[in-house]
Simulated assay, not measured.
Amino acid sequence: MRSMTTAAVTSGADAAPPAASAAPARRRRPAAGLTAVPLLAFTAIGFGAPVLAMALGAFSVKDPATGASSFSFANLTASLHGPYLTALLGSVELSAVSAALAAVLGLLLAQAVVAFGSRTLRDAVLTGSGVLANFGGVPLAFAFVATLGNSGVLTRHLGLADAGWSLYSFWGLTLTYLYFLVPLMVLTITPALEGLRVQWHEAARNNGATRWQYWRHVALPVLAPSLLGGFVLLFGSAFAAYATAAAMVGSSIPLITLQIADAISGNVLVGQENVALALSLDMVVVAGLVMAVHLPLQRRSARWFD
């Protein structure tokens, strides 16, 4: 009996420290939650407020006689018809094509860097990619015009104009977008490529698989969510690009960002500001649909790299 009592007292004494330490843990959780308040506030102010203002303006119509605003779907309807719909589809096409090409080229370049195995080369490529991924806008447009424009250096020396080349076209703009999209893909996919385990390749090789079979049945399925995530990021970057296209092609290629600028500035019709907000809301919806496809696949791939 005495031994049982002693054991009970001992077990009770041993159990006391976790109970005592549970209280500080519970006190730490609210404190940890408070650290996220500045981030949530910044997100609400920086992203929530503009989206709310955009939605309110997109569904508001002002009476030209009285100046009173009323709820209406007229702006949203107008944004999905005529030249606005053409611009939306043109932006989707340009973004999808340039993002797909950049995803393939970026994957090949990143795999070459990872397979080479040099830390110095990896750091140099990633550093250069970080710089080039942020080189866009008017300077990029000027660089391409001076190089591949109608009177560009390469255009004159290689006789590209005689072969039918034009920088101020869909494929010319796609080539320009690749300049900053490919480095962005390299930055995105390199960590995923480095996460591929050597044991997977060795196991496939021991079972008689060729290198192509390994990539087709093992590596690419594992990388698929990361590739899709990179494609989504590239698509969004190309979809939202404005300055490069505005400086290089103007209104010769219908793009939704250019239509928004024209509607706000009144270059087409005066008083189309709310139509511009509806077009911006269309862009948000397109981006949301793409992200809705990406997030479940991203969660599915996370277990492979844990």
Rank of each mutant, 00 (worst) to 15 (best):
A16T: 11
A115E: 02
G33W: 06
P254A: 01
A19V: 15
P221A: 04
V61P: 01
R300P: 14
V268H: 12
F116S: 15
V61I: 05
V113D: 00
A276C: 07
A49E: 11
P221H: 05
L132E: 02
V182I: 14
A124E: 03
A20W: 13
G149Y: 02
P139Y: 02
Q111R: 14
A240Q: 06
D282N: 05
W215T: 06
L178Y: 07
L108Q: 04
F42I: 14
L223D: 03
L76I: 15
Q259M: 08
F144W: 10
E273P: 11
V218L: 01
P64Q: 05
A209N: 11
A246C: 04
P254W: 01
I253Q: 11
A224Y: 06
V293C: 13
A78Y: 03
A15M: 10
V9N: 03
L56I: 11
L196Y: 09
F135Q: 07
T6R: 14
G90Q: 07
W304T: 10
E202G: 09
F135I: 10
A287L: 04
R300D: 03
A87G: 08
T174W: 03
Y214L: 07
L233V: 13
H217M: 05
V290F: 08
N207M: 14
G67K: 13
V37W: 05
A8R: 12
S280Q: 00
A276Q: 06
T10M: 13
A41E: 00
Y242W: 10
E273M: 12
H81Q: 06
L187Y: 13
A302W: 10
T77H: 09
P50T: 01
T188V: 10
L40N: 14
G236I: 00
N206H: 03
M248A: 13
V104Y: 02
R197S: 08
S70M: 09
A247L: 01
L228H: 11
T6P: 04
V9S: 00
L89F: 02
M248W: 05
R2I: 05
L52E: 00
W304N: 08
T120E: 14
L94A: 05
R26E: 04
T77M: 08
V268D: 03
A41F: 09
